[in-house]
């Protein structure tokens, strides 16, 4: 299934986060969560194992609540398509500290590799831009990933969106924590918020 010249998703995410500093990172369910776990567990990671279509909105709520911190959402094309309206909602709010990266393998990798809409016709970059996220681009090199990562640290210049066409190879799962209350309360504690 792998195509030449497409980026490796694990390398993309580890490069994106190699100098993450204080960034808060949300990963969509499935392979994106495994990618985030593979890049190294972190108290500022919010892993999703469900709630398909919700990753960008979780990122938006977080970004609005923590406007001084970079918030990065990493998710897949299928998850992004299910929550496609959330790009329009982000386009209205325009949080400067929110960056969205879609790892686009043009397939539902977790369920057998069925083709997604991006393999045929859907243009996520065009959709994001048309939703009012002016800084929306397609990325195809690790150099551009590094540039995107640097941009994400500038909390006044977002929102930004990038679609990265990645190799469709199914990689070994790297399982993150999946106890939601643990993940939530650990992140909140990292931000100084006490339990109720």
């Amino acid at each position: 299934m792998s195509k030449a010249n497409l980026l490796d998703r694990r390398e993309v995410v580890s490069t994106l986060l190699e100098d993450r500093r204080d960034a808060l990172v949300v990963a969509g369910l499935g392979a994106s969560t495994y990618d985030l776990a593979a890049a190294g567990d972190h108290e500022r990671n919010l892993y999703l194992w469900g709630a398909m279509g919700g990753a960008v909105m979780l990122g938006l709520g977080l970004a609005l609540a923590q406007p001084d911190l970079p918030v990065v959402v990493v998710t897949g094309d299928g998850e992004m398509l299910m929550g496609i309206g959330s790009l329009a909602t982000v386009g209205v709010q325009k949080p400067g500290n929110l960056s969205i990266m879609v790892l686009d393998n043009e397939a539902y990798g977790e369920t057998g590799g069925q083709a997604s809409h991006t393999s045929v016709s859907a243009d996520l970059v065009g959709i994001a831009r048309a939703c009012g996220i002016a800084d929306s681009k397609a990325i195809s090199t690790l150099g551009e990933i590094k540039s995107f990562a640097r941009g994400a640290q500038d909390i006044s210049s977002g929102p930004r969106f990038a679609n990265v066409k990645i190799d469709a190879a199914n990689l070994e799962r790297v399982l993150s924590n999946r106890d939601g209350t643990f993940i939530m309360n650990r992140l909140r504690a990292a931000l100084g918020h006490a339990p109720i």
Binding site: G54, M57, L60, L64, G85, A88, T89, V92, Q93, H193
Partner: peptide, 21 residues
């Protein structure tokens, strides 16, 4: 925060709480 569909709001509130709001 106007939404395109209500389920967006559920996820948004989870993110807000993660960020302390």
């Amino acid at each position: 925060i106007p939404l395109t569909t209500e389920e967006e709001g559920v996820a948004l509130l989870a993110g807000a709480w993660a960020g302390g709001q």
